[in-house]
């Protein structure tokens, strides 16, 4: 238990201490809200899709959690290069506990970042379907957070340094975000994109989040979203744990 606590609180402390990074990480989602939300809004409304801001906010929250969680997972590469990983790996504690602590820490940080964004969105004028929407919304946010922290850990366990990371960003993370339906409705898009999006885990997270917050506007359906998200999260956790257990120095 100590192990989980130590690795969790460590991530939190590092997060809270890096105010510049917190603010910096809010810049991108806010820019999306501004440029897309306000820029595309009228076109979107004219096409009969309703308010684009209402549509976009869940997507941008999903994005923000995706990136924060993934980077927390990938922090492992730093820890490897700057040495702290050694300290945890020789300690007489099971690697599973280290993995759980790291993942919980990363996911908590991603949740916090998402929550800050939620507050900002509310200030900007986003209105959820009602207060009862939040518990389910938080569940999806949490699932996205855990899922991508685990994915980040899995990736970082295989990479030795940041050189390969650029590839991962361009060919995995960016596509996950852009093809997820975070920015556009999947209902009306062309077939191939629909098919690709249905293989993108973030699609289900964002769809669930959007459905919860807007009170029912699901593309895949609430049951599908929840089932896909929880089973994929479990799989990625298992994969991350396995790959992490193989790490040597």
């Amino acid at each position: 238990m100590n192990t989980v606590y130590v690795l969790w609180i460590r991530q939190l402390k590092r997060y809270v201490r890096s105010r510049a990074r917190i603010v910096g990480a809010l810049g991108q989602p806010l820019l999306y809200l501004l440029a897309f939300g306000l820029g595309f809004g009228p076109t979107f409304a004219k096409a009969g899709e309703g308010s684009y801001i209402q549509f976009l906010v869940p997507g941008v929250i999903g994005m923000s959690i995706l990136f924060t969680a993934l980077f927390s997972g990938v922090d492992l590469i730093w820890d490897r290069q700057f040495g702290f990983l050694k300290e945890t790996l020789v300690a007489p504690v099971p690697r599973l506990m280290i993995m759980i602590g790291r993942t919980l820490g990363g996911a908590t940080v991603a949740m916090l970042q998402g929550l800050i964004l939620v507050v900002l969105c509310l200030l900007v004028g986003f209105r959820p379907a009602g207060w009862h929407a939040w518990p389910l919304a938080f569940l999806y946010m949490g699932l996205i957070a855990v899922m991508f922290t685990a994915l980040g850990t899995a990736i970082a366990s295989v990479l030795e340094d940041f050189q390969g990371f650029q590839l991962v960003m361009s060919f995995l993370v960016m596509p996950i975000f852009f093809l997820s339906g975070a920015l556009f409705p999947l209902n009306n898009t062309i077939g191939p994109i629909k098919i690709i999006a249905s293989f993108d885990p973030l699609s289900y997270g964002v769809d669930g989040l959007r459905g919860a917050l807007t009170g029912g506007g699901y593309h895949f359906g609430a049951t599908t979203d929840l089932a896909v998200m929880s089973s994929l999260t479990a799989c990625l956790l298992a994969l991350g744990t396995y790959l992490f257990s193989k790490v040597q120095l």
Partner: peptide, 27 residues
């Protein structure tokens, strides 16, 4: 117990936290 040749501290924690976390990990 081991003292490594190269760095293994967490730079973003205080000296005390580094010690304390080590103590926790080793119960």
């Amino acid at each position: 117990g081991i003292v490594f040749q190269d760095a293994s501290l967490d730079d973003e924690l205080t000296a005390h936290e580094n010690m304390d976390f080590h103590g926790l990990l080793y119960s």
